[in-house]
Design a protein around this nucleic acid. Sequence first.
DNA 1: ATGAAAGCGCTAACAG
DNA 2: CTGTTAGCGCTTTCAT
Lengths: 344, 344
Amino acid sequence: MTATSSDVARLAGVSRATVSYVVNNGPRPVSDETRARVIAAIQQIGYRPNELARNLRTKRTFTLGLIVPDTHNSYFSEVARGIENIAFEQGYTVFLCHSGSNLIREMQYVNMLQDQRVAGVIWIPGTVDFTPYHKLKEYGVPAVVIDRLVPDEVVPAVVADNYQGGFLATTHLIDLGHQRIGFIRRHVDMSHSQGRYDGYLSALHAHSIEIDDNLVVKGGFTLDDGRRAVKALLELRHPPTAVFAYNDTMAIGGLRAAHEAGLNVPNDLSIVGFDNIALSGFTCPALTTVHLPKFEMGQHGTKLLISLIEKKESPGDLLTPLGVKLIVRESSSIPPNGDPKRSN
Amino acid sequence: MTATSSDVARLAGVSRATVSYVVNNGPRPVSDETRARVIAAIQQIGYRPNELARNLRTKRTFTLGLIVPDTHNSYFSEVARGIENIAFEQGYTVFLCHSGSNLIREMQYVNMLQDQRVAGVIWIPGTVDFTPYHKLKEYGVPAVVIDRLVPDEVVPAVVADNYQGGFLATTHLIDLGHQRIGFIRRHVDMSHSQGRYDGYLSALHAHSIEIDDNLVVKGGFTLDDGRRAVKALLELRHPPTAVFAYNDTMAIGGLRAAHEAGLNVPNDLSIVGFDNIALSGFTCPALTTVHLPKFEMGQHGTKLLISLIEKKESPGDLLTPLGVKLIVRESSSIPPNGDPKRSN
DNA sequence: ATGAAAGCGCTAACAG
DNA sequence: CTGTTAGCGCTTTCAT
């Protein structure tokens, strides 16, 4: 059916070895005259080398595995884009694996990827269980973790600088004149949450604002969690004038709670959230968002992984924290509150 | 390094053939006693069959290629999720390929996927050029097109029912009492645009509303295109009271134009848009959105592709139009206009 | 019910 | 500079 190197060899009147040397530009030299004949034959029959066969022979592939918890929010798809961007550039193709934040499925994919003998894996953990990473190590597959730090272990990872983001966001609110700033964190304390919280504390400290524990609310991560958290904050004797939410979904939930309480955002209450969950290109005008460099994180992680695969020195430190961009208001936003009405 | 079937065979005291029969449950029977020994050996050394080798031998893979124009909007990532969902279920893994709406890159990926001898390809065209599809056919690779119809050719494809969507959206506006409804279409007329436009016309016709060509504006597809289009509509002697935009990005642009003109949306001007570009889980409260069944489209396409690969009868017709969901207002939306202020 | 052996398409060491 | 050959790890016909 499909042409093989034997077909090319026969047509060009050379051996299969020579075809290989032409295709791979080595490892042995080929005379210009022969090379031209081989290339002509390749084009004539539309020969494409079988990657499966060469991978089997060379015991090396140019495929990567990408395991993500989900992709229906912009976070993971942006990261995936960054990953695929570098992978393509370096001649790798990537297997896309959605774990759905399910450990069992993560493990299934780890096995499937090992079966394919991928050169390396980029893993965005979906749970707090790091067994998938250890299994990869057991298989001898290089792996890079994105977005989470493995506790008590030094592992190649790319994480955003959540501390810096928390600091920036809080400072932004302070610069706006706020002194009572609420913070909504996660229940299960993942490294992000802690970093953002630490940044929050530092910013308050730097401006000699005393910390009020009543302003810190622990809650899940959903829209409704955010709504409840802000509701609780607004019911305090001394409610905050601004809120910093762990993520943008909760920020939106907070926005709803504010509306329900008859408050206008941002006039009566400023809300800031990280953009890792809900929002994509379009930003809710009333909210201020801390933008994570998702695409860049994907790029960085892939560079790191490939350097690991190719046994180069890793680029700089293994842990590559990335900055965050604080964007006060998206340029594509819509004016926050109603403009003067026009009579119909 | 990694264990092979020979290692298993040696340990279990059987031949490599027997190991194969155990791993594949056939094609020859194996006695229970032998099978048990083989399985024990497999587990003991953590043997994983090399997919590369078995694919080479059987001349068949369980990998699919997925070529998408981009993934930083929810449209493609939702479709990708649907695809991967079915693929996993059927034992396939998928190569993710971002073409960036670039024909050259699409062709490069077509070649890379052929090199990997993928069993089939799902392609979401990024341009109006269908050469990638024809190249796949030339390679003998089954392919399914998602979201676009190939002109003048019958090709396995999954498309949303844009006509139905256009009809629903327009009917919705009519039910709201609108009689003058603007329509913003695309410049380069792709099949979506035409379908949505036809639906618009039908709905008007069904309610005996006369068609006013002045209310139909042709424009690109970006936020700013939408803004300009609505601006133009509002400057008409008889401006529309409602607008139906080809996509949600343009709808958002229209929202801005309305604000700039001092109009309140949806009170003074209703806007409806398809959700294929900008919005993800979070919907802009002032807008009404026609939701495309993205996840389901991905699922459908993959089922179709696999049935093609496995030479089953294709499920029903090759062209599988899907319905659309009209959602009047997202439950997660925020009240459109400012509520009564609270004194600070 | 199992073993021996051939060969998938390719690369690379061995020969000239 | 090029041809011959051995095998990568697996499946499957041929034997027994």
